[in-house]
Nucleic acid binder design. Structure first.
Lengths: 355, 355
DNA sequence: CTGTTAGCGCATTCAC
DNA sequence: GTGAATGCGCTAACAG
């Protein structure tokens, strides 16, 4: 392993001073053509990687990063993404980045549009987007494109946009996996219940559609014939849910397992808990507080984690490194799908990717 | 979020100079009682965390860390631990730590003893131990204890020792989980095969014993009556294995699934592949190259990962932070048990805990 | 015993 | 256009 190459080394090799190398590295102009050529030749030869922690020491520039996601509720999905972002900021404590957080009501398209309009006004250096409403978000990205502000997606990518990168799990495979798991643990011939969120005044999120496709594809690929029964769930009126579930189970007597392709599975686990139901298998998504409780109590059999903290962490880390030294960016980034059970949840560390 | 507190700030608050604070922080002596008290009072109040990347810049001291594990084979278990250690060193590129690596033959107790004797001679600042032979390792730790050289364990802890910390997965739960998984996917009433490594001239590793216990406990707790059939495997003569397997399947006609409580499951997957066997379920441990292949090809149904890279990474990171600024150490550290399937292995990133 | 200071690698700024 | 000088937080060596 060869000794690390520093700016000073490059300067020496190219026969110029350190200041000149720095100007070239940062495209700051005021450099003669001959110097540029000499330095670039050296840069091709050696693999220079600035030490970002130290560069931050002397860096005066402040970066402004805007973050927009649905409102953050404690113990729920989006909190993890924000948490990962915060951790990235801690890792780069020397870099001065100012975060502006704009959250919106994920069930209210007007709220989202309003917030996005504000963002379009700011002079951000970069934007992290957790998208819910397709058209509204596309509109935002168009405005950002025009002003050449880079943006990245967390949670899910969005078609017809040109982000710097996106950080997501493979939602299709997620649904596929859920199908595989539930069918491997329910009695053959029993029915499968599926919780389906009803969104008001907007198309349902793209993530759910992909998961649903993956789920159905697994069943048809494997020639599995258990029927799937919809369980309605009105996200805006959670208090109605108990009644909806009761009705469901009255009409459906052959349910062997239930899957939830959004993060609300804990509601069913809680219902099972209150009603002493322990003969129905349950596969859910996301490590929300209620889901973790349901898993620990034994009502949820498998819980799939999408590593949202990791998505947030990587998004911010990628942006910082890109902003500071134009580190080349990998566009498509898929996080792991964690399969958790009652036995393993105790060892799950949201920040296993850090300290 | 308040501004980060620096040494200079502490010095000012305590009415002394930065040099004095530094001396106190590093227990370097030459400090009056009154100064010490004043500074320690300030330290209690503020939450000082040195910036290790910068401290490394000016740190002249070189740390010598000895690493001892079984020989490292490409694509096998111990390589991951070493890989994690290397990654920690990259993260702390500014700290000058010299690694001395001593590996031994994990099937030869004399080789291990010989290597450990060499280690006992070195003037290491700390030691990372991947233990195989209990008595030999205990002997080493006694010598280290005497010379007050701190040591940490990776892969598994060891009784009757006093390490600074250990980094392991919960092997008991691992076995328990394997039992849960295999019994949930095999036909009821079928038998379970279990690969059992035969070690020459030494007690079998403690990890296997714990896993075995967990496995058996699950079966008895749940009142599961499938019988378990041993498959012998002579680690020193792998070429015999095909024949051993053939004999096994000739005498056993009712095998519904096989579990492997060590990392050699890939051997069975390969055997299945060569012989076109696809009606026997397989649950294995560790992300070795053969195991990953078996999972991708569909011969292994569930693969459990113990995150050895993470163990190595944390071990080195913990040591560095302890050596440099006596960062308080958490003694018991359990890594996650990853449940991987054909669908999720593609997204598994050994270094999901880092960049 | 204690305060002061050089220097680590880097980005920036100010004379030339 | 360019090199030299400065300062970031920290350690270590030195002068008091």
């Amino acid at each position: 392993m060869q000794r690390k190459v520093r700016i000073k080394d490059i300067a020496q090799m190219a026969g110029v001073s350190a200041g000149t190398v720095d100007r070239i590295l940062h495209n700051r102009g005021n450099v003669s053509e001959s110097a540029r050529i000499a330095v670039e030749k050296v840069l091709k030869k050696v693999n220079y990687k600035p030490n970002i922690h130290i560069s931050g020491l002397s860096l005066k520039r402040k970066y402004k990063v805007v973050i927009t996601t649905p409102h953050v509720m404690e113990g729920e999905y989006w909190e993890s993404i924000h948490s990962g972002i915060r951790h990235a900021l801690e890792e780069f404590e020397n870099i001065r980045v100012q975060c502006l957080i704009y959250t919106y009501n994920q069930y209210d398209i007007y709220s989202c549009r309003e917030v996005h309009d504000q963002i379009a006004q700011t002079d951000a250096d970069a934007v992290i987007i957790g998208a819910t409403f397709k058209e509204v978000t596309v509109r935002l990205t168009k405005q950002l494109d025009e002003r050449e502000i880079p943006y990245v997606f967390v949670d899910s990518p969005l078609e017809d946009t040109s982000p710097l990168a996106f950080f997501t799990s493979d939602h299709y495979i997620c649904g596929y996996l859920v199908a595989k798991l539930i069918t491997s643990i329910i009695p053959s011939g029993s029915d499968i219940g599926m919780l389906q969120a009803v969104r008001i005044g907007a198309q349902s999120a793209n993530t759910s559609i992909l998961r649903k496709q993956g789920f159905n594809d697994y069943l048809s690929e494997k020639g599995i014939t258990n029927s799937v029964r919809r369980i309605p769930f009105t996200a805006m009126e959670p208090e109605k849910f108990d009644q909806q579930l009761e009705e469901f189970f009255q009409t459906q007597q052959n349910i062997g397992g239930i899957v939830v392709l959004n993060s609300r599975g804990g509601l069913i686990a809680d219902y099972f808990d209150r009603n002493g139901i322990d003969d129905i298998r349950l596969v859910c998504l996301d490590l929300t507080a209620p889901n973790i409780r349901g898993l620990k109590n034994g009502y949820i059999d498998f819980l799939i984690g999408q590593e949202p903290e990791h998505q947030g962490f990587l998004a911010m880390k990628t942006l910082i490194e890109y902003l500071i030294y134009r580190k080349p960016v990998k566009v498509e980034n898929y996080t792991q799908l964690d399969i958790l059970t009652k036995e393993t949840i105790g060892y799950y560390n949201q920040f296993n990717f850090m300290s």
